[in-house]
Design a protein around this nucleic acid. Sequence first.
DNA 1: GGCGTAAACTGACATTTGTCAAGTTTTCGA
DNA 2: TCGAAAACTTGACAAATGTCAGTTTACGCC
Lengths: 236, 236
Amino acid sequence: MKRENPQLACEKCSVKDSTFFGNMELSSLTCMSENKTCTVYKKNQVVFHEGTRPQGVFCINRGRIKIYKTGVEGKDQIIQILKSGDLMGYRAMFSEEQYPVSAETLEETTLCFIPKSDFMEALSSDPKLSKSIIKSLSKDLSTMADSLTTLAQKPVRERLAGALTMLIDTYDLDAIEGDTEGINLTREDLANIVGTATETLIRLLHDFKEEKLIETQGRKIMIKNKEKLQRVANLA
Amino acid sequence: MKRENPQLACEKCSVKDSTFFGNMELSSLTCMSENKTCTVYKKNQVVFHEGTRPQGVFCINRGRIKIYKTGVEGKDQIIQILKSGDLMGYRAMFSEEQYPVSAETLEETTLCFIPKSDFMEALSSDPKLSKSIIKSLSKDLSTMADSLTTLAQKPVRERLAGALTMLIDTYDLDAIEGDTEGINLTREDLANIVGTATETLIRLLHDFKEEKLIETQGRKIMIKNKEKLQRVANLA
DNA sequence: GGCGTAAACTGACATTTGTCAAGTTTTCGA
DNA sequence: TCGAAAACTTGACAAATGTCAGTTTACGCC
């Protein structure tokens, strides 16, 4: 039974406060809501491909998405994992170029697609939205400078520890003892976040298990000692 | 004899067309020009330190600047090299956080400092400026996704070849036979761009010399075969 | 619940890159 | 122009990580 696409109103969105639109004027918000399209994507479905032209932006209502770039040998480098409340695809729209990355669902995901013209209209009518977006883009650049430095200078072990601590937030984990929720990512995806070979990644996960930093159930990774992970990661 | 700081008017700036301000209304431009400060920095002078608070933005009138982040072991990762016409420091200002990076002159450099309030005023009075900045930030994020993927996936040799082709533009080189202008960077800086050890970098430069891709005179690197360098770099 | 395929895992070995130490050359400031 | 310091260079060896091949486990579908 294929899941029906929902009709979600922005004003009533349960994750609205996590989005750029949280402080938007109600009239602008309902206006933008009227022309959007809500779609349920299955797990491992590509939302957009690197090299295609953006026609609008996507707001994530539910689920998680990997943003990745495919290198010359066909291997993927995961740049970011987005979750509910995040806006996706707006950068390529602003730079008036093709998507420099691809986007693929990591689990079943509901996306609201806002056509370019409606989004630009909202941007013009609400100067606070512009400001939020500039601020967010600037923070993203700061984060990426961090990522670049980490990749250039830290060994794989430290990078994996750092990635796991980051994923605590992405998966909304409490990291409290007994918490059975976990990070559900293939080892290949995790290796593509860290920037290493899958086998190397697996070996280090084994080490972390031996050291009681994590536990696994099937593919799921449970964080057992967040503080120590952060120390291993050499986070300031 | 210490060099005097010049008084440069934005309306008459020789690199104005390379800046964000090239299409700005003359009245806004002169207004902004009135409250700025022009300063000559010597080679190897730090303009701002990572962790400090921005009070405005810098526009590069002349010279080159390395933007770098210092890792946990004290080694620098050069994120970007900026040249005349580039604007510097605006991202931290927008994100309302401390500079996530440091900036240091690579040669004698003239900078125009525009106080935050004047810059924000200009931004408010010229919506095209906002748009240019959003566009530029978005392109920068695309470039950084590239850099991240390159660092994760390409071997050092390819990365060096890519860095050298990028520096052709930064140093305004023609790459025409007989051109005696060159890239004047320490081997340590070049290694910090590529993300490798200085010795590894030097060995590869030696290889490139043997292969007639480059020539050196003292520290200066002359590009001899740009097309082949691009092929070595596996650039699309 | 069973099956098949993909993903996860492991061991052995190869390759790439880094570290260390010492010597040579270039740069820069007085 | 000179001298000292910084930068460049080279060789030897170590460490980190990747590749390859085979085995085991997990997941998704019927």
